[in-house]
Design a protein around this nucleic acid. Structure first.
Lengths: 381, 381
DNA sequence: GCATTTTCGGTAATCGTTTCCCCACCTTGG
DNA sequence: CCAAGGTGGGGAAACGATTACCGAAAATGC
């Protein structure tokens, strides 16, 4: 009679981490059943306020934290959101991740981050891992992903958020970035300054967004009667290294443009670097425009004129899009598209092209400000 | 008799995500019990090879993925590692996160990332969230955290990894970064070039690592008979903004140093920015040295001479340290400390101080290489 | 050829929750 | 004062895995 029935087995609870307290301890201390504790924690209104108070006190005393795994197991909701980015080391993404995380956590979700590094095998394993951890939805922010890899998610009717484009299915929402507007502003800004020879360094062209940005550039140029020759549209990689390589290629070709637009800011920073190495002055000899407006852009030398794609907007739309797919009662549950605006931010990497009004631009004293006098209106007589 | 017993209840399985298959389906299809499936999946050698093959085939056919939540619930191990950083938007950390994640995933772990943003409330909630998700261990890579917040983790005997310093307890491992060596190399490099007036911009001094770096600087200076006046040791924030502010403060004071060392690369990039704005040339007028050697450092203008703290090393040590605490059979289970080396990487932000050998330094053509001829030996007659 | 050992797979308990079902009890109406 | 109605709370069955235990069949010894 010394050992009660449960002691004969090697109880699984022995494996439990010390200090972990379960709903049972709370129930015991409060003198109620575990059902009541659960109801209290989940704020079911039917539980008697006095009892509830006792339960909360017990929870406090024993330091109870509900076990999320058990919760997820029974409810079928893990309250985790997957967030797939292409490279966490590209500064654009940490900013996005940060915003996304803040919003998700505020809504009671946890974030499962993964970067694909443009590697299909890695992406595949990432998706499998997310499925195993049974995330409630996935935001695919890589700006271009192999369709077939996502198939698994689509099959399981996972709420999904894509950027730019995605299949038209009930659980899928798409964030439409307005590439056109921002890039048009950039092109017109340069044209207004007097530039006629404007080059463009694209991202990797298997990415839908890279193509979209390039097309927006070509279209904006055409609108004002300009065309860039083929050798002035160079494919890059959306990295600083790519920016350097692309710019060096262009430099080697001779016949330099007077301005270079880039598909993202990292590329632009690479371009600045390449021009520094070859002692070309920016913006005096060549103007440079980026895209994204990452935090770093304002600290580039010179501070980078760039097209802003609001990270906050993007993150907010992603989280809301996922919630809309997960929570049936969400106000925008029916929306399928979410529009992300862009706009030009003028800093100091753009100026009049060499030869026009040189005296004005040469005095590079301190105190240059974002609202510098190099605006389109000044150019017009 | 129409409805069997289980159909009378509103079965919880109804809530299951479509496409999800459980171990039961596999067992049924393979014609074995769920125990056999489990044993097969976990590669328990006692299961008959023929049976195992049948089971694997069934797994493949139905597309079974073991539910991690259920696994974690029964085993008490979630196979998740917590990773706490201070700011994911500081480029140093994504690099660390990336490495950490690669290693963790290779070992079958998932990573739960969180950034404190230097906010104790946020840190508190982060730790609570990690506890709820029952991570197996936590690496605290913030280089300085409030002791009391960690208390909760310590109490629960969580395997922990700290950077720089941590309590001496059984489950805790510390990564000791050798700040001294790298900073000494930096100071001696500058001194060898001829600098005597070297300033230092620290990190926020409530961070242990910031203090350690400053102390290493002061010590290295003293070793070669130099002292920096108080106004040449300025507190920064480990951000670009902080670097700008600190440098501007120093500029306002007059009595400029000929070289500035910074507690991290972001600060150094801020310093470069401030000097650009005030048209001071780097390195001709002022030399700048960073710390960390983030990827961006080589793309700064000019490319930044900096003290490298190997991210790969740090991440590898963190993962191994955690595994050592979690898995009793780990080869280094007994180790308490892990040493992280540092070393100077010379690029182009350092040169002879103004006035000494100016002609040699002025020809800033391309082709400057890391192994430039500005070494100590050249200086000595 | 029978008894003993070994192998191998199935049954069931368990992890920590949520939630369905039902039984008390209390309130209220007649 | 008793029956009907409503309501709060407890018991127990899931969720999907792991694993201790046990029993049946196969292998082996004498």
């Amino acid at each position: 009679m010394a050992s009660p029935v449960s002691a004969t087995r090697n109880n699984a609870a022995d494996r439990r981490r010390p200090g972990t307290v379960s709903i049972r301890e709370v129930a015991q201390r409060a003198g109620v059943s575990i059902a009541t504790v659960s109801r209290t924690v989940n704020r079911i209104p039917s539980v008697n306020p006095d009892l509830a108070k006792r339960v909360w006190q017990a929870i406090d005393e024993v330091g109870y934290l509900p076990n999320t795994q058990a919760r997820a197991l029974v409810s079928g909701r893990s309250r985790m959101l997957g967030l797939i980015v292409s490279e966490i080391t590209n500064p654009f993404f940490p900013e996005l991740v940060q915003e996304f995380e803040n919003l998700a956590v505020a809504q009671g979700y946890e974030v499962f981050i993964g970067s694909t590094n443009y590697d299909p095998a890695r992406t595949e394993s990432l998706i499998r891992r997310m499925l195993q951890r049974s995330v409630d939805g996935v935001a695919i922010m890589t700006f271009g992903i192999e369709e077939e890899l996502v198939q698994k998610l689509v099959e399981r009717e996972f709420p999904l958020v894509f950027v730019d484009a995605g299949p038209d299915l009930p659980n899928i929402r798409v964030l439409k970035v307005d590439y056109g507007e921002g890039i048009r502003q950039g092109v017109q800004h340069l044209a207004a300054l007097g530039h006629r020879s404007i080059a463009f360094i694209t991202g990797p062209l298997y990415m839908r967004s890279a193509v979209a940005r390039r097309d927006a550039f070509v279209k904006s140029m055409a609108e004002i009667g300009l065309t860039a020759p083929a050798e002035h549209i160079v494919e890059g990689t959306h990295t600083m290294e790519g920016g350097i390589a692309s710019m060096e290629k262009m430099l080697a070709l001779g016949e330099l443009p007077t301005a270079v637009m880039c598909s993202n800011d990292m590329t632009a920073i690479g371009v600045l670097h390449a021009l520094y190495r070859t002692t070309h002055k920016v913006p005096e000899e060549i103007s440079v425009v980026g895209f994204d407006d990452i935090h770093l852009a304002q600290f580039a030398l010179p501070p980078l004129t760039t097209v802003q794609m609001s990270c906050k907007h993007l993150a907010a739309a992603a989280v809301e899009g996922l919630r809309a797919g997960i929570e049936p009662a969400h106000p925008r549950a029916a929306s399928k598209q979410w529009r992300i605006p862009t706009r030009l931010v003028v800093r100091q990497s753009t100026a009049f092209p060499r030869g026009t009004l040189p005296a004005l631009m040469q005095n590079a004293s301190s105190g240059r400000r974002e609202s510098s006098p190099r605006s389109a209106s000044e150019l017009r007589p």
